[in-house]
């Protein structure tokens, strides 16, 4: 299968910060790649470069067979962009948004009109056709945004955090719409902070943090990366969390993650030896424990252990 998106050692610098630090990845034509990472990991910067909105400082990328720098115009004719940054025009009604984009693609007026009608109908926005997008709900805006990015019948579609800020129902609706696009053969690059979303839509997942690829594979492969099991310990006193985590981290390669809100410590363990060593370490601490169990990790836990992040730690998220 040929790659619809081919990224090689891509770099983007902002001042002295390397927002994207040598990313290499491939998206086979007709597949969905989930680009997963915390805020500030560099996801949006990658999408902006692949959408020809930002110039890379190093590396190369080809989209639908064209170079994103030297053949930007050809790339633009084959992509659609939806999400955080590309947005709908708030100053004109929903229908006019789609008609305008059709005309900018040089569709004849009749075809542009028909397509605007069709897309509004398909995204259940017909009733809001004459309304300004600023009067739309969050879900309606995203749907219009997605519709707008389909006017050009793109071969490659970028969805940059398409459901951030949406309520669960709207999120499920949007997922269904993305799935029907994929069924038509569109290649999709999806960025998201939610493992659940990547797993629901993507065949392949690339996890990035601090501008680098830290893991990639199918959701099942990523699950396997943590070794299969997670040990969870609930100490009697919340104050003991840090001490236990410190002791556990000394036992093996992986580091324990503390969740002060839940009063939990989680530690990925692979095999008997690691588990036994962890239990010995726990006993050695001598702190009272309220509960303890092991379970197969959820992808969110895999994600957290990969990004070695603490969900409550905001200092690194804004980096």
């Amino acid at each position: 299968m040929t790659a619809a998106i081919h990224v090689e050692d891509l770099v983007k610098e902002f001042g002295s910060t390397r927002a994207v630090d040598g990313v290499t990845m491939q998206v086979p034509a007709g597949s969905v790649l989930g680009l997963l990472g915390p805020n500030g990991a560099g996801k949006t910067t990658i999408v902006r470069m692949l959408a020809t909105l930002a110039r890379p400082d190093g590396g190369r990328a080809r989209v639908a067979g064209f170079d994103i720098v030297t053949e930007a115009h050809q790339v633009r004719g084959r992509i659609g962009l939806t999400g955080q940054y590309a947005s709908v025009d708030e100053t004109i009604p929903g229908w006019d948004n789609l008609y305008l984009i059709g005309r900018l693609y040089r569709l004849p007026p009749r075809r542009a009109k028909a397509l605007a009608d069709e897309l509004l109908e398909r995204f259940r926005l017909s009733k809001a056709a004459k309304k300004l997008p600023r009067d739309y709900s969050g879900g309606m805006r995203r749907r219009l945004d997605l519709a707008a990015s389909l006017v050009g019948d793109p071969e490659v579609l970028y969805l940059d955090e398409p459901t951030t800020g949406l309520d669960p129902r709207s999120r499920l609706e949007l997922w269904d719409m993305v799935r029907s696009l994929v069924a038509r053969g569109t290649t999709v690059l999806l960025t998201t902070q939610y493992m659940e979303e990547a797993e629901a839509l993507a065949e392949n997942i690339v996890v990035i943090d601090h501008g680098r690829v830290i893991a990639e594979g199918t959701p099942a492969e990523l699950r396997g990366r943590t070794g299969g099991q997670v040990l969870r310990i609930r100490p009697d006193r919340g104050a003991d969390l840090a001490e236990i985590a410190r002791q556990l981290s000394g036992t093996g390669g992986r580091s324990a993650v503390t969740d002060p809100d839940e009063g939990l410590i989680t530690l990925p363990v692979s095999g008997q030896e690691e588990l036994t060593a962890a239990l010995h370490a726990l006993t050695a601490c001598g702190v009272p424990v309220d509960g303890i169990d092991t379970h197969t990790p959820s992808l969110d836990e895999v994600f957290l252990s990969l990004t070695s992040g603490d969900p409550a730690d905001d200092t690194r998220r804004t980096a």
Partner: peptide
Amino acid sequence: SKGVMDRFRSMPI
């Protein structure tokens, strides 16, 4: 200042 410019710029116009 609005995102709409990004949409235009990502199109072949």
